[in-house]
Design a protein around this nucleic acid. Sequence first.
DNA 1: CTGAAAGCGCTTACAG
DNA 2: CTGAAAGCGCTTACAG
Lengths: 365, 365
Amino acid sequence: MTDRTKIVDIDPVTVPPLRRRATMAQVAALAGVSLKTVSRVINGEPGVTPELTTKVTAAADKLSYRHDVTASSLRRIGRNTLSIGLVLEDVANPFSSSVHRAVEDVAYSHGFLVFAGSSDEDPDRERKLVEVFSGRHVDGMIMLATGTDHSYLSGEFQKEAPIVFVDRPPKQFESDSVASDNEAGSLLGVRHLLASGHRRIGFLGDLSSLSTAESRYQGYVRALKAAKVKPDPRLVRRDLRSIENAEAAVEELLALGSPDDPTNQPLTAIFAGQNLLTIGALRVLHARGLQNRVALVGFDEVLLSDLLDPGVTVLAQDPQQIGRLAAELLFARLNGDPSPFQHIVVPTKLVQRGSGEIPAKDCVR
Amino acid sequence: MTDRTKIVDIDPVTVPPLRRRATMAQVAALAGVSLKTVSRVINGEPGVTPELTTKVTAAADKLSYRHDVTASSLRRIGRNTLSIGLVLEDVANPFSSSVHRAVEDVAYSHGFLVFAGSSDEDPDRERKLVEVFSGRHVDGMIMLATGTDHSYLSGEFQKEAPIVFVDRPPKQFESDSVASDNEAGSLLGVRHLLASGHRRIGFLGDLSSLSTAESRYQGYVRALKAAKVKPDPRLVRRDLRSIENAEAAVEELLALGSPDDPTNQPLTAIFAGQNLLTIGALRVLHARGLQNRVALVGFDEVLLSDLLDPGVTVLAQDPQQIGRLAAELLFARLNGDPSPFQHIVVPTKLVQRGSGEIPAKDCVR
DNA sequence: CTGAAAGCGCTTACAG
DNA sequence: CTGAAAGCGCTTACAG
């Protein structure tokens, strides 16, 4: 709490004491019917006389009865809790929160509620979340998974409830998944730079252990090879986790280029494999006034990037679509869809805004 | 699903049938003890011989028993479900999702899980969310509330569980709240523009029914009055809900100014009362090449705004802090804190980046 | 059409 | 230290 934070006590109102809510038994007593009849009315089951229905409704209103979903699910066949668990990297991350919103909308349309949690890309935290969701008896799970081994899920959870992976397929484990076409998108982005004459293209990548990061790197390599450009390890910086990491990496990349060494020309373009890495690259390029000299293409959308000068060319993902498809697949499974596991690939889109269209010949520094 | 979306069936693996999980009774049977002893071991209650403890643990492991939090809360005194409900405007909105993350972190440290939902500023949706959370027996709620009347909460929910409001205090209802110093921040921002010589300052505001929007407008008016500048209704555009609304409003504001009317000089600065409205203003100013001619100060942080030219001067809120304080207050209530309702005010900070420091005399258009 | 009994998975309150 | 019984709020399965 900072010094300037003010706390105003609202006097003389005091916190009221809590009280218990009414039960079906109490409603039944007031209405003069059996508990079971109340249950029928509340659940909208057919076969209750209008008179009794009216009595029950009146009693329920009077006691402001609200149905206890938790208790009702206990005895119900299948033990459905009408809730799903959602494991994200960070609920506050733009990609994650867009997925969250899409999942929420589908879940609500089915009368389901969503528990969401942040793993911070920590496999232990992720597993903890799965256990907690499982302890809450969620009916299914959607996971933006981290780590290199999800086999623990087969013993622990999959036998009880379906799991759909988003953004990245699971490892050491089989299940449904919905993800962007990472390799194809990356290939397209790098090919776009090659088409403008670039040959010295730097690569910024997230943790190599993430399949998305690996696929995007493979797309980069494949594009270069297809254009008969030999990949140069000096131009590749991977395992970057933050804006700061990316800034440092770009500083290093910009320092490349030696007059004595013809194989070590300066770089003329950067391909950033992720959101934060694009931002890091932007910060350095703008700080050094190089934003119109060094081309830049980023994977994943960056907010406001169209207002920058030049605008930032990106491979836009569709997190809304990914979240929606994942949720729909999950509900299909919940409804008993027995088909083989699916791997749904959602296309990315190259959005040209300027930074990716700087020709190589303009890159004199 | 777009045309390019690909679905790959993973053959021949098929979805495994679901099975029920083990119960305490099954663990007890396998361990050869009573159900109650299993309960004691699982809950870490004292007074069980090491031998029995070992037996129970082994049986639980063998059956991969996992505790059912839902069932256990049913009989437990107080019916705690170790969960809280969080009503946000939109889980994908940057402010909301930052609050979410902060709440999540505090909740987790207490062993609680968070249900989050989006109201989309629709009072009916908000109320629906409250009912659903309440039906799930959440132990408390944090609400970024909309609408003009929250008195329904006193009949419905507050008697059962504490509620803390974030971002905006409740209306027609008393409860704890944590919010930014909207009026003071706005006052500071407009005073900052006045200090650079601006007298014709446009105001962009969100829905007047939102207390935050109203407070920010009041700050604008107070700052003008303090500087003996007569507020001009022609410069005020309120009830704007989107980037597009803001764009249209700014276009109108820029068209102001008539040579025949000395009371109707062109505007030289804009104060945007919210995130999206700042973005709308930016779009128009940049599109017309006026970004260095018309000063702009925005309420709430805008991502990447430091990379724009000029950088965007804003009144930064602290959603993390707001979320954290709200969650801590909620847990204090859950722990029985009986003190009067509190209204905590979190300060905003003026971040000068260029757009707000354009002097009035440079505003010739 | 209506209801009394048993049970969901667990905890409480009590007895041995 | 251990356990048999009753109960949390509701649904199921069955009888009238």
